[in-house]
Design a protein around this nucleic acid. Structure first.
Lengths: 153, 153
DNA sequence: CCTGAAACGCGACATAA
DNA sequence: TTATGTCGCGTTTCAGG
């Protein structure tokens, strides 16, 4: 069931995206409202699943995750069984941060975050031993120019 | 200045990534410690920049962001001036959620989140009018199989 | 729907062991 | 380093405009 989102809701969402730690009072001030209504709106959007869980952004480099690959995958197999196994493999591997099924001649793209190139190779070998893929291209990130989860509300 | 991260720190980070809203007591219980030490560790990691800002995960689809493109960019220009203008353009556009400079024959990859295909075209036209790029390939996501910012600690 | 206020819990820090 | 304790803020709730 779709929840109506008005301009105030959008402002609240933008504020939460920018900093989920700020107090209700601060948000209320920024959106031109006050505590209780803001709280009620947030609760409703949480219940509706529009606001998901709360998290922190960590410094990947500082924690030793120095390699990031984008992996382009072509497959020849498109049956349900293969797809099921492939999806399960992706979801079970924590180094896969993103996985999208694509339109066009490339079938999937993954974003894989690992400690180093060797760790990527281990991941890659494990993946292709689980499911057969026709063609794989890995793009190595040299520099993360920009990274955000914020939607352009 | 590199901060030493031990096993307990890693557990705390994992807990925060999973749910940044939980109380110190809950985290302390999960990592087998108690309030104060956990709080001290968190404070230190915040100061060191290992823990960045706090945010919420929003449901992009529910908010009308139904199109997601991965954009592969090749350029022939590699001078500092061009690069400066290109980076500025990427950083100033909120629909660009990620931008990486790559090794290999593709120079950049972007992740672009927009309301629909038309909005992507508007973005694309605006971008290429600002900076000259040699070759652009857009990959359209049909399905977001997995999406997380969590590092595999 | 919003305002105002009350109550409780929790985070923030100081103190001490 | 950890445990204990206090203060004040913030979340959450409820009674009324």
């Amino acid at each position: 069931m779709p929840v109506r989102i008005d301009a105030t809701d959008r402002k609240i969402l933008a504020a939460l995206q920018a900093d989920a730690a700020q107090s209700l009072d601060e948000i209320a001030k920024n959106v031109g409202s006050s505590k209780t209504p803001v709280w009620n709106r947030i609760r409703k959007m949480r219940e509706a699943g529009i606001i998901g869980h709360q998290t922190v952004v960590l410094d990947a480099e500082a924690l030793g995750f120095e390699a990031c690959f984008f992996v382009l995958i072509r497959t020849s197999e498109h049956d349900a069984d293969w797809q099921g196994r492939f999806l399960k493999a992706l979801k079970s591997r924590p180094e896969v941060q993103e996985a999208h099924r694509l339109a066009g001649d490339i079938d999937y793209i993954l974003k894989v975050r690992v400690k180093n190139a060797r760790a990527y190779d281990i991941f890659y070998q494990a993946l292709i031993s689980e499911v057969k893929v026709h063609n794989v291209t890995a793009l190595l990130s040299m520099e993360e120019i920009k990274s955000t989860v914020a939607l352009p509300l």
